[in-house]
Nucleic acid binder design. Structure first.
Lengths: 193, 193
DNA sequence: TTTTAAATGAAATGAACGTTTCAAAATTAA
DNA sequence: TTAATTTTGAAACGTTCATTTCATTTAAAA
């Protein structure tokens, strides 16, 4: 009986992601989203409820796209050392290909909205927990394989790596010199071996 | 002959800094600034020209306040190791005392505006150059004193430290556990010794 | 005291903001 | 074809945006 949703929700989210990533939440207007998605203003509100709600979906979309990328990289890794190096390599790729210096959308959003919007704060807390759990898992395996030292706990190293990734993403906004960044990563990882 | 500027420009900048730091550039309205400074709307435009121009002055104000803090810390340091530790300690203090999780205003602004506003990009490039030059100088001294190793150049270590500070500030937005952060800093600095 | 320029107050500018409304068009299942 | 429901278009909502205007008030230098 009903007319079913005709537009491709993922495609719309992708277009919305590009705008939000480029301009940030407060810098993006509803008109920007109408233009980018070529959806009608009413359709956006019908389907997403509000600008904030759409942004939250966009964040999840961006996050799962990233995770898919990471998981594929990790699946192809022989051991913990390679897994960690893959994570940093994927981040490096994103930096080098980020021609308009947008940075990581999740890092940007954390800096823009955590202290303003509880739903975003909660998203970021879960994101951090998940990231650290994943890193801790890898480090832990590396320590059992004696590839990584045990001078600090896997959890401590995980927080260190999480912090280093954020630093790398911030640094990569202005410095996209691949040699510099590879060296930076090398220095970051040295402490594990 | 003329009536001279009666309001305290530094005090006004301080109040404006608090708003911009809390809400970000796009999240701050002219009304917010009128309320915070208790200056008249016209006076703000007379004295600062535009919102963007005021923000640029605010950034410099924030930066020089920071530099003063850092320089005092550095002046009291016996050697390069202490100097670097002081820099991280001062950042840790700011994180722990940042009750509303605003993060570092310069990091936030970099993530919000570098790809949108050329004047901000230029500010951030200069900021980065200055920071790295300062860090390189300290590392270089530490290497001469044989307190730091020479496995990487002073410039490479400086970029690493710059990146680590940004990571620390991003991490400190959600994680303000002092033990965690001290451990993180310890891990960051280990590679130098 | 007069001159000069800055600070103020309050209102207005027009554009943009996020959101709502609702009738018309489109599409699918019965 | 009919009934059900979503998408669309376009306009409008009231609010807020950054900025301008200008007459008035203030205060210091001449």
């Amino acid at each position: 009986m009903p007319k079913t949703e005709t537009f491709n929700r993922n495609h719309v989210l992708q277009k919305a992601t590009e705008v939000f990533h480029k301009k940030g939440y407060n810098g993006t207007s509803m008109q920007d989203l109408v233009d980018a998605t070529t959806l009608n203003r009413s359709s956006i509100y019908n389907s997403f409820g509000s600008k904030l709600n759409m942004f939250l979906e966009v964040l999840s979309h961006y996050q799962s796209y990233h995770n898919a990328n990471f998981n594929q990289g990790l699946a192809n890794s022989y051991n913990a050392k390679e897994a960690i190096e893959t994570i940093f390599e994927l981040n490096l790729d994103e930096i080098v290909n980020d021609n308009d210096r947008k940075g990581c959308m999740i890092v940007n959003c954390k800096s823009e909205m955590v202290n303003q919007e509880p739903s975003i704060k909660s998203f970021m807390e879960k994101n951090q927990d998940r990231m650290i759990a994943m890193l801790e898992d890898i480090v832990s395996k590396g320590q059992m394989e004696k590839i990584f030292n045990k001078e600090q706990t896997a959890n401590q190293y995980a927080l260190y790596l999480f912090s280093s990734i954020q630093g790398l993403r911030m640094t990569g906004i202005l410095n996209k010199n691949e040699e510099d960044l590879r060296n930076l990563i090398k220095t970051v990882l040295k402490v594990l071996y």
